[in-house]
Structures are given as C-alpha cells and as structure tokens.
C-alpha cells in the first residue's frame, strides 16, 4: 500500500503510525520545523525593523544576511570566532548605514513602489559586488559547539547544537529589540518616525538619522542571523535571496512590524513545512508555504497576529 511515496502498513490502527511514524519521529519533525522556523524568523525580524522605522520593506535584507555570513567567514581566518562574528556584525552595520546615506536619505518623500525598486536594485548590486569580492564558492562558519555530526540526543530525538544556538540567539535578539522599541527613548523615536514622520519631526526628532539607524540595526540583526545560520545553511554570494523570500513570507504571515509575531509565524510555517514532508512528497514543501501566504493575504491581510486597524493606518 502506498501513500505519496511512503509505504505503510494498513494493519496498524492509529493514523499517526499508519504513515510509518512513531512519537520519536513526530518530535524529530517538530525539531526540523523549529530549525526552519527560526532561520525564517530571524530573517523576518530584519524586515520588521526597517518597516517599523520607515514603513518600507527593504528587499536587500537577505543580502545583509549574506554579507554577515561572508565577512564572518573571512574574519574567522584571522581571529577567534566570537570576534569574527562581532566584527562581521559591525562591518554589515556600517554597510547598512552607508547604503541608507547614499541611496535613501536624500530622497524626498519616496513612494512605496519607488522604495521597492530601489531596494531590489540594491540587492542585485550587493550580490554582484560580493561575487567579485568572494567568488562563487560555498563557505560556512565552523559549528559554534561540536562538529557537523554532533547532536544532542533527547530520548531518540536528535537536535544539532547549532539549532540551539540559532534559537537562543534569535530569542535574545527579539527580547532585546522589544525592550529597545518599547522602553528606550531612541527606540520610541524610531517608532514615532514610522507612525508619522512629520509629527515626529515637529517633536524635534531627527527623522533622517532614525532611518539611518534603522538600516544599521536591521543590517546588524541580518548579519547576526547570517553568522548563526551559516553552519547549517552555508553561505554563498547569492544565498541571501532565497532566505529573504522565506523571511518576507514569515514577516507578512505574522503581521508586518511585529518581531514577536514573526517568531510565532516562523515556527508555524517551519513546522507546517516539515510535517508536509512527512505526509506528502517533499517537492510540495514550498507550495505549502506559498499557499499559506496566499490564504493569509486573502483572509487576514494584516497577518495572523496583526491588527487590521493598525495596518489600515499604514501606507503599505
């Protein structure tokens, strides 16, 4: 008897077990889903930061992730891993700031569509430049703890220590960001700029600087993501775009601008993708995520966790 491409025994009564499954594998799929989910979520957070400060989507976000991973790999040849990552985050942060100052800052009231085109252009530019700097080969940082084969065994369910790193660092990043945006003056100023730039200006906030800062912050988060996921996913000059597509999906799914929601949405998408592989041929994995995205856009355009009222006030 065959379902999809898995053979299973029809004599076993329970549904779960019918697909050649037991609880061990059930949790293994959950772990796989969480791995996918955190990778998506940490990329999605970068989208949200710039969106929060400017109301625009930065389509070059995936490239920040790539630059972070690439520079960290380069630096890791000269210095210990933590310093390499810190320097990579710093370099990407400066890159983010420079990009904003060169290409975004002097635009007078840019429309959403113009910003989309500019950021897509930037992403192509960064990708091509990276190819000339680093060449076309695949790189990766070493595993932070253990090696590529080590895993933590939780009663038959295996989890790579790097996944724990990704989950942990993303969690810390989200908490810190939430604190920053809710309780610090700078964070609130950035949010004010997003809500109404003119009013923020009247209150004495330097709106231009806030936008630069948001680019730097999201570049830094992107770079950090690039560093922690690179042992799992590898990094290549063009590996930013596929990550950005998934990250964008998750940002929309959760509700744009909400980093906590991005984590939730990332987990939902990751686990759904992982379970889709269990039941259906793996080739349908991406069809699942796109279907979910479309459903959300039709049924809840403001995202699973988003508020319709808030999104009505936004330009995009």
């Amino acid at each position: 008897m065959q379902f999809g491409s898995i053979r299973y025994n029809t004599d076993t009564p329970e549904l779960l077990f019918r697909y050649g499954m037991n609880w061990e594998f059930f949790f293994q799929y959950i772990i796989a889903g969480i791995t996918y989910g955190t990778i998506y979520a940490v990329v999605a957070i970068g989208f949200n930061i710039i969106y929060n400060a400017t109301g625009i989507i930065n389509f070059a976000q995936g490239e920040f992730v790539m630059i972070g991973g690439m520079t960290a790999v380069t630096f890791s040849h000269f210095m210990p891993l933590p310093f390499a990552i810190a320097s990579a985050v710093l370099v990407t942060m400066i890159t983010g700031g420079v990009i904003e100052i060169l290409f975004i800052r002097w635009l007078y009231k840019p429309s959403v569509i113009r910003m989309i085109i500019i950021t897509i252009g930037l992403s192509i530019l960064i990708r091509e430049m990276s190819m000339h700097i680093w060449g076309e080969s695949v790189r990766a940082l070493p595993y932070f703890t253990g090696t590529s084969v080590s895993s933590i065994n939780l009663g038959g369910v295996y989890i790579s220590p790097q996944v724990v790193w990704v989950v942990g660092i993303s969690a810390i990043a989200v908490v810190c960001l939430n604190f920053f945006f809710s309780y610090t003056l700078l964070g609130r100023q950035m949010r004010a700029c997003s809500a109404n730039r003119d009013a923020a200006r009247l209150c004495g906030i330097n709106a231009g600087n806030m936008v630069t800062l948001s680019f730097m912050l999201s570049a830094a988060i992107g770079a950090l993501a690039g560093c922690v996921v690179s042992p799992i996913t590898y990094v290549q000059y063009d590996s930013g775009t596929p990550l950005a597509i998934k990250g964008f999906t998750v940002a929309i799914l959760g509700g744009l601008g909400n980093s906590m929601a991005a984590v939730g949405a990332g987990m939902i998408l990751g686990v759904l993708e992982s379970f889709s592989i269990w039941i259906m041929p793996a080739a349908y994995k991406d069809a699942i995520s796109i279907t979910i995205l479309l459903l959300i856009l039709f049924l809840r355009p403001s995202g699973i966790f988003g508020s319709a009222e808030v999104s009505r006030l936004k330009e995009f």
Binding site: G33, Y234, L243, W278, A282, K285
Partner: peptide, 19 residues
C-alpha cells in the same frame, strides 16, 4: 524524495528516510 535546489536544511527529508 525531491527537494528544492536552494534548500537550506533537509532534516525533515532525512527523518523520513530514517522512519
């Protein structure tokens, strides 16, 4: 199983093989 050429993690696919 067939996976996407840009796949970044294949844990679920290999879990299926293990199962």
């Amino acid at each position: 199983e067939v996976y996407d050429k840009a796949a970044s993690d294949l844990t679920a696919e290999v879990t299926k093989l293990k199962a």
